[in-house]
Each structure stands twice: as structure tokens, then as C-alpha cells.
């Protein structure tokens, strides 16, 4: 992704939800994108799929997948890319499955829509295979979404997402509505199918714990900007950006009591961003330059990128 720029039109003027966001994703890699509410993380995920709906608009940027710029494709060509090349596991699968269709018909729909019109027997075979690969019993094929638990529904969504063997799987808060035990099972399922496919995963979310345990590299978003991208281990041992550092310090742990503290101040409103670095009003290290000039994302150490003047 190069220099993505996304605006949302509001009655109070245009709001920049993603500003010059750039990153690369390697084959087979798990990349995390973490941010608090309003940071632009879901916008980023939807932009890759070109699923930003009005009043939102992608104003600039390029999204390259295997040599093709997705933002330059026709709508029909893009429709074919979705699911077949890049698949989405949506937030709250509860609402993304069709409530009046059996699970097998929803999977078959996906197969047929992408020009694969195999025989009914082949479809049934493939459905069984897919359900098995996400740890669901074959009987689930004939069930309706309301007959499944939250974790089973999310697995069914994973089954649909991998049905066409995509190169990239985008998972937007895939487990935010699930209990921790079920969350772990769903993430293990995702890890397994990803490995089988050799696909890359972009995991979007707010849970730093989930990121720490699942992704290889982590991007941190703040106020529509990507402010740090580093290997996940480096982020937790030596964060580069003050926001990343304070975000990690704000997390309660199960190891030690009473060591976490909040970040003073508030997340800025996107339509009313402070000049310079958007984090400067909350940053204990801010200097004059931070108030005047917006820092760009730079490589500070090998594979470690941050947008901070102090680095």
C-alpha cells in the first residue's frame, strides 16, 4: 500500500480517516494493525478491499497485489479479486452471515459467484472439506446461522473466506465479540488455515494482547496515521513511538499488580486535529517542532519504522 488517503464527508466538512498510509505485506506474513476507536484501522482494511462506502472516498494511493494496482481495476474486476485473491473475515460474524440461508448454500454461493460452477456433488465435497479445515462437523453444512454459537459462526466465516484459496486474508476484529476461550480456538483455526494456504493475514484490532501473540509485524495507528511499524517483538521490548510506548504501559498485566497507567488527555477528533504531530498534546516529550511539523514515517532501525521527530 502506498500513500493511501481516505476522506469521509461529514456535515462539518471532510474528515481524513487515513492519511498517506504506506506499508508492505510479505507472502505468508501476519501483519497486525492496532489502534483505538477512530484511529482509522478499519478504514485501512476496507480500503484494501475497496469497500469504503459513501460518504467515504479513497482520494489517492495505490494498493498493489502481485503486480496489480487494485485501486485502478474496474468495479467488476475488483469484485472478482474479492474473496478469490483477498478475503475478509468481518467484525461480528453474527451479522455477516445470511440468516435465512444454510451454511452450505452460503459457501456454494461464494464458489459459484466466482465462476466455479461445479456439480452439486463437488460443491458438497468442497463444503465438507472447508468445514473440516476450520474444525466444524459436517452437519453444520445443513444448519442455519442461528443454530450456531458465536465461535462456530466465526469459523463458518473463516471457511467462506478461504473457500477460493485467497492470497491475503483480512481479519477485522474477528474475535471481539467472543469469550477468551473461544477466541483462542478461532485464532488457532485461522493460524492453521493460513499456514495450509500459505496466505498472508492482516489482523486489524484494538487488543494488544492478541497482536502480541498472533502477528509477526505490527503497525500502530493514531488519528488516521500509521505512526509505527515494527516486528512485534521489538514493539513490546523497544517501542519507537512515544504513543506505542504509552499504549503498552496502559495495559494491565496478569504478572504484576498496579503497574499500568492511562495516557493523559484524549484521542483527538479527526475533524479537528492539532497541527504538527497529532499526538503532541498528549506526548510528554513534545518539542516545538512537534507542534509545527508533521513527522513522516521513517526507517529508524532495521525493519523498525516510526513517525516521530525525536527519533
Amino acid at each position: 500500500m502506498r500513500n493511501l488517503l481516505v476522506h469521509y464527508g461529514t456535515p462539518l466538512g471532510a474528515v481524513t480517516a487515513a492519511d498517506s498510509v504506506s506499508f508492505s505485506l510479505r507472502a505468508g506474513e501476519r501483519l497486525g494493525v492496532v489502534g483505538e476507536s477512530g484511529s482509522g484501522k478499519s478504514t485501512l482494511a476496507l480500503a484494501i478491499l475497496r469497500m469504503i462506502k459513501p460518504p467515504g472516498r479513497i482520494d489517492a494511493g495505490e494498493v498493489w497485489l502481485d503486480g496489480v494496482n487494485l485501486l485502478a481495476l474496474s468495479d467488476e474486476a475488483m469484485r472478482q479479486v474479492r474473496l478469490a485473491r483477498i478475503a475478509l473475515i468481518p467484525q461480528g460474524s453474527m451479522n455477516s452471515l445470511n440468516p435465512v440461508m444454510r451454511i452450505k448454500d452460503q459457501i456454494a454461493d461464494a464458489l459459484r459467484d466466482h465462476g466455479l460452477a461445479p456439480s452439486r456433488r463437488q460443491v458438497e465435497e468442497r463444503v465438507r472439506e472447508l468445514l473440516e479445515s476450520v474444525g466444524l462437523r459436517p452437519e453444520v453444512a445443513d444448519m442455519f446461522p442461528h443454530e450456531l454459537s458465536g465461535g462456530m459462526k466465526q469459523r463458518a466465516c473463516i471457511a467462506i473466506a478461504i473457500s477460493l484459496r485467497p492470497r491475503v486474508i483480512i481479519a477485522d476484529e474477528p474475535t471481539s465479540a467472543l469469550d477468551v476461550v473461544v477466541q483462542k480456538q478461532v485464532m488457532e483455526t485461522l493460524a492453521r488455515v493460513q499456514k495450509d494456504l500459505g496466505a498472508s493475514v492482516i489482523l486489524v484490532g484494538h487488543d494488544m494482547g492478541l497482536m502480541a501473540q498472533f502477528v509477526d509485524r505490527l503497525g500502530v495507528m493514531y488519528a488516521g496515521r500509521l505512526i509505527e511499524v515494527s516486528p512485534v517483538r521489538d514493539i513490546f521490548t523497544q517501542p519507537l513511538h512515544p504513543y506505542t510506548e504509552m499504549l503498552i504501559a496502559s495495559l494491565p498485566s496478569l504478572e504484576q499488580k498496579g503497574t499500568f497507567r492511562g495516557i493523559p488527555g484524549l484521542i483527538p477528533l479527526l475533524r479537528d486535529l492539532p497541527p504538527g504531530c497529532a499526538f503532541h498534546p498528549r506526548c510528554p516529550h513534545a518539542v516545538d517542532r512537534c507542534r509545527a511539523e508533521e513527522p513522516r514515517l521513517r526507517e529508524i532501525r532495521p525493519a523498525g519504522w516510526a513517525a516521530c521527530h525525536l527519533r
Partner: peptide
């Protein structure tokens, strides 16, 4: 089952109760 926000990766290797 709780994914811990730390550099130590222990979460997914524990498959006993998966």
C-alpha cells in the same frame, strides 16, 4: 486462553485444550 501483551509468545503453542 488470555493472550498476554508481552514479547513472550506462549499463547498458541499450548494446544492442550484446543
Amino acid at each position: 486462553s488470555i493472550p498476554q501483551a508481552s514479547a513472550a509468545r506462549t499463547w498458541m503453542t499450548d494446544n492442550a485444550m484446543a
